[in-house]
Structures are given as C-alpha cells and as structure tokens.
C-alpha cells in the first residue's frame, strides 16, 4: 500500500549554511528555523532514510512556518519565498518519486503572492502553497486576498493552512505549550469560519483548501457555528447556507492524536476529504504514522487506504 504525507516540513539547507556560518539570511538568524530540533538539519538523504523507516512513500514538503516572514518588507519576503521554493524544487527533482512540494508565498502582497505561486506551480511543478491562518492580523475573508484564491483556483493549486507564530490563546495562557496544543486547533476553526462565513468558498467553489491538524476544532464546533448562523443576522451576511454545509468543501489532514477525534472528523466531513498528515519532523508529529492509521480499529481498510494515499494520489496526481 502507498502512503503520501501532506504535512511534512523542512528548514532549507541554504538558510542553514548561512546562519550556521554566522551570517544572517534575509534578516533571519539561527534563532529561526527550529534548529533546536536536530532533524531539521537533516539532508534530503537523511530525510528519505527516515521516510523509509516510517514507511512513508511520498512527502509533500513545505518549509517550517517560521519562513512565512509576512511582517517583512515584501521584497524581502519574496526573496525568502523564492529561495525556499527553489530548494524544495531541487529536492523534488532529486527525488521525483519520493518528494513533492508546497510553496512559500509572500501573502502580505497579493500581486507578489500570485506571481510566486504561479512560478512555483507552473514552472517548478509544486502542488500549491502553505500559508498561515492570518497575515499581520488580517483574516482570509479580507477582499485583498480574493485575487490569490481566484488564482489558486485557476491553477488548481492547493492552499494548505498552517499557523505561524503566535496563535489564539497564546496571550491568555502563555504557559504549558497551550499556544500549540490548543492554539493550533482554535486557529484552524477560525480560518474555517473566515473562508466560510466570509463567502470565499462560495466565490471560489473549486478552491482546494487544506486545514492542517485535522481542521482543528472546526468539525467539533460546527453545531454552535450553525446556531450562530441561525440566530444572528450578521453571521448570514455572506452565506445562504449554514456553515455545516461547507465542512465537505475543505480537506483535512489526520493529525488529531486521537482515534475518536479522527472518527468524528471522517463522519463529519466525509472520508474523501481526509488525508495523511504527520507534521514531520516536529515533536508534535505522529511518531509512527502508517502504523497508527493501520492500527485504528474504528476505521475500515478502505477508509485507511483513502487517508494513506488514495485521496492525495488522485487529487495531486502523485
């Protein structure tokens, strides 16, 4: 059986060469890039060896989220994105059967973001882009982002949503790793809401949006979002249907760290919408992703195959 992982990160070697020799890299330093995790320093060969040990056939590689750098001047962010994308492209050229790529794009400037997405998809053969849940405080319902969604829709590029930096709740509770364990999941529910209540999914019906971390709290919180839509007119400003009707318009990775949560996700959004996502090589990853999925007793073999490879194979042409 095949396996394709949509949620796998890298810290570019070109960044590491610069910062580890004492230089800065487009203003970034060795404090960036999650180098405290030794696996982020691994070469592509070492990555492939680890994939072999995990039983993962293909990684769809994105950079670590620290490379978003949306708060920088757009020329700097664009240069960062280009270097990241060129390196991931080279990885996919070196290992065409094992690696595919997701681009980094400078979201603070729609024109620059579209230009780099176009280059990444149409020249470099990447599958889409990974972006944050917000850009300098702006959520994705803002009209300035609409041209990006339309361009992505037209290119057939997937948009993979993954937080960068602080999350919802980081300020309320800065301790205990809540920023990640709760914040990532709350961020993703709010992004689901921004695309849905904001009318983006109606305007771009063929847009392929992936919500990392199982879409966070989106499917579990949908009942209350529906209630809000029913009783509050402002929640109906852009959409004629309740938010639950949009659950099966998104895609989700299976990174739930919970069998009942994954079962509920499948039952809520449909099995054709859930794909393998491990968060390699972060400490919050699924340690043995194939073994984990295969070991889930509440999933049928067909459901496991859909998650492990079939959904991504047909969607991304891998």
């Amino acid at each position: 059986m095949r396996s394709i992982d949509i949620h796998a990160h890298s810290t570019p070697q070109c960044f590491q060469r610069a910062v580890l020799s004492g230089n800065d890299w487009h203003g970034m330093t060795s404090a960036d890039g999650e180098l405290f995790n030794p696996r982020n320093a691994w070469t592509p060969d070492q990555r492939i060896a680890d994939m072999n040990s995990l039983g993962v056939d293909i990684q769809v590689v994105s950079t670590n989220a620290g490379f978003y750098q949306y708060d920088k001047e757009v020329g700097v962010s664009t240069a960062i994105a280009r270097d990241c994308n060129d390196e991931i492209y080279q990885m996919t050229m070196d290992y065409p059967d094992r690696l595919a790529g997701l681009a980094n794009i400078p979201m603070q400037d729609a024109n620059a973001a579209i230009a780099e997405l176009d280059r990444a998809v149409n020249q470099l053969g990447m599958k889409g882009a990974m972006i944050g849940d917000q850009v300098n405080g702006k959520t994705f319902d803002e009209p300035e982002f609409l041209p990006i969604w339309q361009a992505a829709e037209q290119m057939g590029a997937v948009i993979f949503i993954h937080q960068g930096g602080s999350t919802i709740g980081s300020e309320r509770q800065p301790r205990y790793h809540v920023r990640n364990t709760i914040g990532n999941l709350a961020d993703r529910a709010v992004t689901f809401a921004a695309f849905t209540f904001g009318g983006v999914m109606d305007k771009c019906p063929d847009l392929k949006v992936f919500l990392a971390h199982g879409g966070g709290y989106a499917c579990f919180g949908i009942g209350r979002m529906d209630r809000g839509w029913q009783v509050r007119s402002e929640a109906r400003a852009n959409i004629d249907q309740p938010p639950s009707n949009y659950l099966d318009k998104f895609y989700y990775d299976c990174l739930t760290h919970s069998e009942p949560a994954l079962r509920m996700l499948i039952d809520s959004v449909g099995i054709d919408r859930v794909v393998l996502g491990t968060d390699w090589p972060a400490d919050m990853k699924i340690d043995w992703p194939i073994s984990w999925v295969m070991g889930l007793q509440s999933l049928t073999l067909e459901e496991k195959e859909a998650i492990l490879w079939k959904n991504l194979e047909s969607m991304l042409g891998l």
Binding site: F197, W229, A237
Partner: peptide
C-alpha cells in the same frame, strides 16, 4: 466582521 464566532468558536 461580527459573524458571532467570538461566541460560537
């Protein structure tokens, strides 16, 4: 935008 997600989420 006031979609009541301050409450619902």
């Amino acid at each position: 935008k006031g979609w009541a997600i301050d409450n619902s989420i």
